[in-house]
Write a protein that binds this DNA or RNA. Structure first.
Length: 403
DNA sequence: GATCCACAGGAAATTAAGGGTC
DNA sequence: GACCCTTAATTTCCTGTGGATC
């Protein structure tokens, strides 16, 4: 098995092929790395572990420790915030305000702080870097500038480590960024059932009492997780949830039955959690789809129908501005991506091209989730006027009902 | 084959909010 | 206080789509 501590020690002892490999690079930069892999395959955990062990070995060998800065691009997701956060991590006594400064001023400040506070290498870990690239038009600027920042530094050296859940993430990158950033790449494959079982076994020995798990519980959790996603975090969640269910029912052992119950519960919990966290506008759109499906049964629901119902309800809710159809269409797409609704674009000939929408979760569950929003409570049983019409469109011309 | 419908969805513009400098 | 910065949400404008109908 690979031992990271031995690797570092051997590396320090052995005769080296390179005297100074940096000389062969433009601007003498250390390698930047991309790490790819599906969620829960241990990418972030490995980087954390390597950072700890590397600094431990540096301390033992009396070598200057490296500075490691971890940023999750889901939370720190703009050019300004990334630069500001790095500056604040380097010098907590002189934080950059959360807004107000021009980008170039913060970038100059960052260079100054890197040279003042970092003696050797500084590793910048951009976790979920794909989110930054997808959401920010000018994300290429910051990646390009960070990748080439070494040319402006006098003392410090910056190494970028990008971590992404999207394997084809590089295809979204500007070629200039790619050539500066994508020097080395490591791919983490999804765990298979045997690997997941080994991880679960290791954790279960610590988490559960002796003989608390029936023999086939861990293989079943591992098999379900491997079949669906290969995500170790989710496999551990499944095992924990199964244990909690057994505990709640005062059982002495966890059996397969609890694993299957836990599996169903996790799916429901996920939907409920997502629904409760939605902004009021999205909840109102979901409520409109709920009404259309409840009162129209199997008849097709299209964007125009949902917008009519939404418009009716939105004007009744105090403090809620009515959005445009363009925005509502976008929010329907987000609900589709979340799995709460199914919205497929289809052409209906001379009746136009639109989204055909239906709820992906049972009506009673949708109603339960929406009831948690006080401002929508009184509209759960409301019947929008537009659902009583036999025409698809109410505004402008009328057309026959799409079947 | 041309026309038509009801949007889809990309891109740019606008607005509001939070903060800075001078 | 005027003016500058950024971000996020939303609107406006526009072109594209694709299959039924003419």
């Amino acid at each position: 098995m690979f031992d990271i501590d031995n690797y570092f020690q051997d590396f320090m002892k052995n005769e080296k092929i390179f005297k100074d490999r940096d000389v062969l690079r433009p601007e003498f930069v250390p390698s930047n790395i991309f790490i790819f892999g599906k969620p829960g395959t241990g990418k972030t955990a490995v980087v954390n572990h390597v950072s700890e062990r590397l600094n431990y070995q540096c301390r033992n060998s009396c070598i200057q420790e490296s500075k490691w800065i971890f940023l999750n691009c889901q939370q720190v997701n703009t050019e300004y915030r990334i630069l500001a956060r790095i500056c604040s991590e380097l010098d907590p006594n002189d934080p950059i305000p959360i807004a107000g400064w021009p980008i170039d001023v913060i970038f100059d400040k960052l260079i100054e702080k890197l040279d003042s506070f970092v003696e050797g290498n500084c590793f910048l870990i951009l976790d979920e870097i794909d989110i930054l690239v997808k959401n920010q038009k000018n994300s290429h600027n910051i990646l390009y500038n960070l990748a080439r920042i070494n040319s402006k530094l006098k003392k410090a050296k910056v190494n970028l480590i990008g971590i992404s859940n999207v394997v084809n993430f590089k295809s979204f990158l500007d070629p200039r960024v790619l050539s500066s950033l994508g020097e080395e790449e490591i791919i983490f494959p999804a765990y298979n059932a045997m690997e997941l079982a080994a991880i679960l076994q290791q954790r279960a020995e610590i988490a559960f009492s002796l003989n608390a798990l029936e023999e086939d519980v861990i293989p079943l959790c591992a098999a379900l997780a491997a079949k669906e996603h290969g995500d170790a975090r989710k496999a551990l969640d499944l095992l924990r949830k199964a244990g909690e269910l057994a505990e709640r029912r005062n059982l002495l052992t966890v059996s397969n039955k609890q694993v299957y119950f836990a599996h169903d519960d996790i799916e429901k919990d996920k939907m409920q959690e997502y629904c409760e966290a939605l902004p009021l506008q999205s909840k109102t759109i979901l409520l409109s789809i709920y009404h259309m499906q409840k009162y129209r049964g199997d008849r097709t629901i299209i964007t125009g129908d949902v917008y009519n119902a939404y418009s009716e309800i939105a004007t009744m809710i105090p403090g809620l501005n009515k959005l445009t159809q363009r925005r509502v269409s976008e929010l329907i797409r987000e609900l589709d991506l979340s799995g709460m609704v199914n919205a497929r674009v289809k052409s209906n000939g001379r009746y136009g091209r639109t989204k055909f929408i239906k709820l992906n979760i049972p009506l009673e569950d949708t109603s339960k989730y929406l009831m948690s929003e006080n401002r929508l409570n009184e509209y759960i049983n409301y019947r929008p006027i537009c659902v009583q019409q036999q025409t698809t469109r109410l505004q402008g011309k009328k057309y026959k009902q799409i079947l």
